[in-house]
Design a protein around this nucleic acid. Sequence first.
DNA 1: TATAGCTGTCATTTT
DNA 2: GTAAAATGACAGCTA
Length: 782
Amino acid sequence: MLYLKKYFTEGLIQFTILLSLIGVRVDVDTYLSNQLPPLREIILGPSSAYTQTQFHNLRNTLDGYGIHPKSVDLDQFFTTRRLLNEVRQLDRLSVPSTELNTWLVHRDSETVVSAGSQSNPGITLDNGASLEDINNIEATPAMRGGGGAPESTYDLNAADSSLGAVAPEGNQEQSSRGGNDDLTKEDIDLIDILWRQDIDLGAGREVFSYSNRQKDTEEEKPNTQHSKDVSEEQESWRNGINLQGSQLVDGETGESIPEQVVLGSQTSLSLQECLRLLEATFPFGEEAEFPVPVSNQEVSAPNEEVPSTSQGLPLAPQLPAAEPQLDLEQQWQDIMAIMELQAMEVNNTSVQIVSNTGSARNRTAEPNPDVSLHQASLPSCSQDFPQIFGPQLESVSVAPRTSLLRLSSSNSTNINSTFGATNLTGVFLSPVNSSSNNITATPNLPDPFTTLLEESMLDEISLLDLAMEEGFSQAQASQLEDELDSDSGLSLDSSHSPASPSSSETSCSSAASSSSTSANFSEEGAVGYSTDSEVAAAETEEGAVGGYQPEYSKLCRMSFQDLSQFHGLPQLNSINHNHTYNVPLSSAFSEHPDLPLSAGKKSSRDKKLQPSQDLLDKHASRDERRARAMKIPFSNDKIINLPVEEFNELLAKHHLSEAQLALIRDIRRRGKNKMAAQNCRKRKLETIINLEQGVQNLRRDKARLLKEKMEFIRSIRQLKQKMQSLCQEVFSQLRDEEGRPYPPSEYCLQYGTDGSVLITPRGGTAAQQGRKPEKKQKDKKK
DNA sequence: TATAGCTGTCATTTT
DNA sequence: GTAAAATGACAGCTA
């Protein structure tokens, strides 16, 4: 828990500081609504962010340039990595341990001892203690209750009470505030000092309605120091950053921060010590009053509607996984990148993912799913967003978030295996679950974002399923494409000349001898009637009869376009036809009838010569038979494939009748058209295959984009959680002059462009008034 | 026998 | 304008 508290607080601080440094007034409402429309879309607008088009737009917008279609993968990949790294760096900023340790020394003397953390009497926070060491230490009960047990990792009661003095029930107020009720005069003075700083910044003193100011003289001291020159102020900004971080970390870990120490139950420190602490903590003066850069009025509107805010810190339970989460997140990012690359290579990975997604989906329905890392990545923008500043909504969101986290486990199973025994579920969800358990009024509200996200994931899963079902890897597709390209269309090999089919047909037809064939000729009436004797004579003349076998018909039809190329396409497996595209086999012996055939075939022919001839005639093309019947002196191969000039010369050489010439021209026309049809069909097939591959590529791209989208959403959600946690911490530690907490439902933090953080009433105009803090309704006590 | 797929062919369009 | 190529449509054949 301490982990996560520190993690989120630091991240939130760093994030806000970063925004401030770049000159962005951290009005989160404005920021989310105006500054980064894409982020806003992701956070606020599932309707827009979850449309594929919008996501592309998001990506393009983030890139700042249009994506060329041909460079989508690389461009997108690098862009995504860059953006993710940038986002990661936001929470990579570390608070210098020295600063923190220095502060912890103070705390050690104050809180650990005086606050009565009896549970850990032996714990000492020396300078050598690291953050994690501190985090491992159970916090003082006064601040956070028992931090050990997961169920009570965060003392929600205490948290609620500390923050939730505004709760209408107000039952917890007494118990929570504990020592805060014991505000001493010094405490009030210190508050006065703090507010005095705001006054110096321009806030009217009348704004502060508290009455017990009695030590104005002591106020001058910090004011004098804080009213240094501007350059020093800028320098103090850095110190402020560090000290803020240290301070907040301290507060997050449960140890008291200066205000808390002084204003709360601390009586062991003198006012001088408190002032010294303040100086050390807020060296930059007025801006340091509320170092937590959180502000939101719009989001907190629900708080006003529901005054009975749950002031607990539901996010805090997630803190124990902070450090591990960072590492695991990094690993996850790396693995995601690897998976992306793998997905671009082979579908095996996708298949594995699919199988895993199935199990993950099953696990989603389990009451205690073994949630993996990716599950934790699923955010609920529509719900998380109000969570940031709507404390009462946190309780509402906890359970949905848990369910959300389970949703995105699609790709995580193998990741879990990668991480070995690391139970990411426990890392992410256990605290959340514990938190949700503590929060009673936590209905599982339907989350539209969850629904959309689930749909997206299911869509992705379905896509992966489809990819798996297709069993068509990209490598195979590429290979196939290459092969098809090399063999496609008109670029026919000379050895496989288009003349071949004709020659084969010619040779085949040379064996044809049957009256039926002659009758067939007569039926067509193309070239007149031919008797059997004529056909036989023609066969003898052409000499193409020899060696023909019935099997040859099939051999002739064996296309050099090896369909084995399509074995990778299951949808084509059923196609076992032998397309006689440009088969050259027959030309060899059609032009050279003396060529011997295989012995087996020869014996077969000797055995059944007449039936062979019938079959030969049967398989011979009509044009071949007609040519033989018409005693065409050259093969159909020549007729079809000779160039026009040579073809005309060939015709000129021979004295041919008109019938013969007509037949020859018809043979040429039909033969060319036949090849053209074959090529056309082949092109069609190629086109279909290419389209299928394109669809597959698009599916992969979509799956990859969905993964990237998940990463973005997760990053945003983490940042929101950090901000939320930090905001809660701030409000839990803020006290008015009377020691009463500021109800987050009534106040919000306003972050100025100069880095100042002000607390302003919700709905007030303090945001437009700059740094002048307004403290209204401080007396309101619920 | 019905059906799907392949193949050849024709008519037409495109190059 | 012609030849070649491409393509849609149709019919025949085969499994």
